[in-house]
Nucleic acid binder design. Structure first.
Length: 647
RNA sequence: GCCCAUGUAGCUUAGCGGUAGAGCACCCCCUUGGUAAGGGGGAGGUCACGAGUUCGAUUCUCGUCAUGGGCUCCA
């Protein structure tokens, strides 16, 4: 008896009982059969040789179908592991999953540490294996105990551990078979895989690094090889090119070119020194930030950088956050701590007097500098540091006001992120397993967050159980100019601190009620945000942010007066302008301004002075020709005040 | 913190057992130029720091610190 399957175009097709995806492909067209590498059965990725069932929705996958990349990379990982064990017979294999744009495999190799030279050898061995056209064959383990014993005998302790755990989940091996059908290698794996290694052609091993078995630092230290794999040479080259481009944008590299920030051994790692150029960018952002907050009814506050430990005992940070806090310092016999968060301070201000429901909502905002201990290995330029300034705010409101307040925050987020040229996506994180508070409170808070998202028509995904133990939250992910993802704004409804600090207001009924407290940061931290901006813009800050907005270049000494005059006119308009009067050639000075990513260069020579014009060059568009000084000043002023994102 | 790699003038880097060379930047001189490098000269390095091996260490070994890539975590 045959079975009917549904094809992607909606049609159904009858095939013989026991048919696999491969049989179906062959029945459809020989050409499809030859190109088939896998199959989607009811939207699940499967081996090409998976038997079909009556009523299945089936799509044959070829290299052109995006889901097939997963197969390619997973199979590439197996080929890499096979190659490593061929070259290093003592190597024990751990796990080798696919990741975004590639895959990795973890190994324990007694007595050998992998180096970059090894990568070349492994690649060569992989090429040999792939070209020998080994078949990847799924194999149901008939006798788990025997297989465990086999793995034990081979010393594959990680596989023993994995198989023991998965013994009841119908575990499978993938066998690598050579042309003669001999099993040359195998790996415990649930698949799916390509039918053969011959499609594995365009791969590259990228780097080796350390890792832990099961991500647990108390367990074995493993060596991890990161690699990538693509169907075509063009795709591989394109990917490697993207990596290079990303490297060029590295904020640490650009910082050296544009003199933006530094860290110093004498001072300590993870502590950032903002040089004048980047400080200008930051100041400009902060002015903008303040103006937008003022418009939205926020009040600015300042709070101390250290506080008695008592404060953090009340807030609970001493219990739950101690490992991120610096050791106490003794002040007159009392233990003080550097502040790791701004919230307790803002609560102090809120509690400094009795609040009426008529006062609410209260929105306190602070560019608050905090210090957190980060393990030395995680520090990274400006993106991961030990002292940083958050654009922090806490909103105290009633339950009834909560939804509206969150909408206000979402509005602010949209305004700010759009101005910087980021697109974004929202995630709603709900109650985790371990959490404080009642069901009713979580529903109230989560519901307000979700309704606000819906009313603003924001696409969002739900991260089930992804909330913090004391709060549901909205996280916004940003996408930069080259499509990379950054952690962005976050909004949390705190169900903990109002209780710990007894944060209340007097209601219409004359009784005390617990206030609702919202934490939110839009930029995150000035350090991380500005570091991210450097990469987003590749150092070419839009005019309104650029440290130097205009460089004026008088061609020779006799044009200096005209240059001074223009500079003064620009300065009066608040433009950050610099005259380059050095006795270098005009070309040289233009080149330098270009390399500094200065948005505009103005050249003044005989022709311009005579006609009272200026010759304007834009860093990307090149020579814009001449115009009157007034027109240039107006144009620039317009671009700056409207925060143009040029290019 | 752990694994691996790296650490030579402000920056990018060559060298690698016999106490360092380049390009750019910097300073001086000449050049006054039409939209991405005009020419010449000069100064600048305890080769990250500390021990050890050696007749001799920037070069080899160990330790420390920092940086980079990961693991883990988060703004």
């Amino acid at each position: 008896m045959g079975l009917k399957v549904q094809l992607p175009d909606g049609s159904t097709r009858e095939v013989a009982a026991g048919s696999t995806g491969a049989d179906l492909a062959q029945a459809i067209a020989n050409s499809l059969y030859r190109k088939a590498v896998g199959v989607l059965i009811n939207d699940e990725l499967k081996d090409l040789f998976t038997p079909l069932k009556d009523g299945d929705k089936v799509q044959i996958l070829t290299a052109e179908d995006p889901p097939a990349l997963e197969l390619l990379r997973h199979s590439s990982a197996h080929v890499m592991a096979e190659a490593v064990q061929k070259l290093f017979p003592d190597a024990k294999i751990a796990i080798g999953p696919t990741i975004e744009d590639g895959f990795y495999y973890d190994f324990e190799i007694p007595g050998h540490t992998l180096s970059t030279e090894d990568l070349g050898k492994i690649e060569a061995e992989m090429k040999r294996i792939a070209e020998s056209d080994q078949k990847l064959v799924r194999f149901d383990i008939p006798d788990v105990d025997k297989q465990i014993a086999d793995f034990k005998a081979q010393g594959e302790k990680f596989k023993v551990e994995l198989l023991t755990e998965h013994r009841d989940h119908s575990p499978t091996l993938y066998l690598m078979k050579d042309k003669e059908g001999n099993v040359v290698w195998n790996d415990l794996c649930r698949g799916p895989h390509l039918p053969s290694t011959k499609g594995i052609k365009h791969f590259k091993l990228l780097k080796v690094s350390g890792s832990y078995w099961r991500g647990d630092e108390n367990r074995e230290t493993l060596q991890r090889i990161y690699a990538t794999s693509w169907w075509t040479k063009e795709d591989l080259e394109g990917y490697l090119h993207r990596l290079e481009e990303a490297e060029k944008r590295d904020h640490r590299k650009i910082s050296k070119q544009l003199d933006l920030f530094s860290v110093h051994e004498e001072v300590g790692p993870g502590l950032i020194f903002w040089h004048p150029n980047l400080a200008t960018v930051r100041n400009t952002i902060e002015d903008f930030w303040r103006a937008e907050h003022r418009k939205r009814g926020y009040q600015f506050v300042y709070t101390p950088h250290i506080a008695s430990e008592q404060l953090y005992a009340i807030s609970g940070h001493l219990e739950t956050y101690a490992e991120n806090m610096y050791s106490p310092m003794d002040i007159d016999g009392q233990a003080y701590r550097a502040k790791p968060m701004n919230c307790p301070g803002h609560i102090m201000i809120y509690k400094s007097r009795l609040r009426s429901y008529r006062d609410l909502p209260v929105r306190f905002a602070e560019l608050g500098t905090v210090y957190r201990y980060e393990r030395s290995g995680v520090l990274h330029g400006m993106l991961r540091v030990r002292g940083f300034t958050q654009d922090d705010s806490h909103i105290f409101c009633t339950r009834e006001q909560l939804e509206g307040e969150i909408m206000g925050v979402l509005d602010l987020i949209d305004m700010l992120m759009t101005t910087f040229g980021y697109t974004y996506k929202a995630y709603l994180s709900t109650r985790p397993e371990k959490s404080l508070g009642t069901d009713e409170e979580w529903e109230m808070a989560t519901g307000a967050l979700e309704r606000a998202l819906q009313k603003r028509n924001l696409d969002y995904e739900i991260d089930e159980g992804g909330g913090v133990f004391y709060a549901p939250k909205i996280d916004i992910k940003l996408f930069d100019a080259i499509g990379r993802e950054w952690q962005g704004p976050t909004v949390q409804v705190d169900l903990n601190l109002p209780k710990r600090f007894d944060v209340t207001y007097i209601g219409e009924d004359g009784n005390r009620h617990e206030a609702v407290m919202v934490h939110r940061a839009v930029l995150g931290s000035m350090e991380r945000f500005c570091g991210g901006l450097i990469e987003h813009y590749a150092g070419a800050f839009p005019v309104w942010l650029a440290p130097t907005q205009v460089v004026v270049i008088p061609i020779s000494d006799r044009h200096q007066d005209a240059a001074d005059k223009l500079t003064q006119a620009l300065t009066e308009k608040g433009v950050r302008v610099h005259v380059d009067k050095r006795s270098e050639t005009m070309n040289y000075r233009i080149r330098e301004a270009q390399m500094q990513q200065t948005p505009y260069m103005v050249v003044l020579g005989d022709k311009e002075v005579e006609k009272n014009e200026v010759s304007v060059r834009h860093r990307r568009k090149g020579d814009l020709g001449t115009m009157t000084p007034q027109l240039f000043v107006d144009k620039l002023h317009d671009e700056i005040t409207n925060r143009f994102l040029d290019e």
